[in-house]
C-alpha cells in the first residue's frame, strides 16, 4: 500500500514530467480528453491550464506536437 499524500492536481512534478517525456511548455497528455469530457468531477473549483485557465506564455492551441488542443470557447460557442 502506498502512503497517500496531499498532492495538488493540475500541478505536475518535474519527476512526473520527466517520466511522461513532456517537453517544456507542453500540456499533459490527457488535456485533450479533459477538453472532451470536461474537468475532473472531484475538483469543481480547480483551475486547469487549457481548460478554464490560461495556457503558459508562448504555448499554442492546436493538435501539433506540444499543442494545447482545443481553444476555449465562450458562452456563445
Amino acid at each position: 500500500e502506498v502512503k497517500l499524500r496531499e498532492m495538488k492536481p493540475g500541478m505536475l512534478s518535474q519527476e512526473l514530467k520527466d517520466a511522461l517525456g513532456m517537453p517544456e511548455g507542453a500540456p499533459p497528455p490527457w488535456l485533450i480528453n479533459m477538453q472532451r469530457y470536461g474537468p475532473p468531477p472531484s475538483y469543481p473549483s480547480l483551475k486547469i491550464p487549457g481548460l478554464n485557465a490560461p495556457i503558459p506564455h508562448g504555448a499554442l492551441f492546436g493538435y501539433h506536437p506540444g499543442g494545447w488542443g482545443k481553444p476555449p470557447v465562450d458562452d456563445q460557442g
Binding site: 497517500l4 512534478s13 511522461l20 475532473p40 468531477p41
Partner: peptide
C-alpha cells in the same frame, strides 16, 4: 499516484 490524482482523489 501523481498521474492518477489528476482525474480525482
Amino acid at each position: 499516484y501523481d498521474i492518477l490524482i489528476q482525474a480525482g482523489r
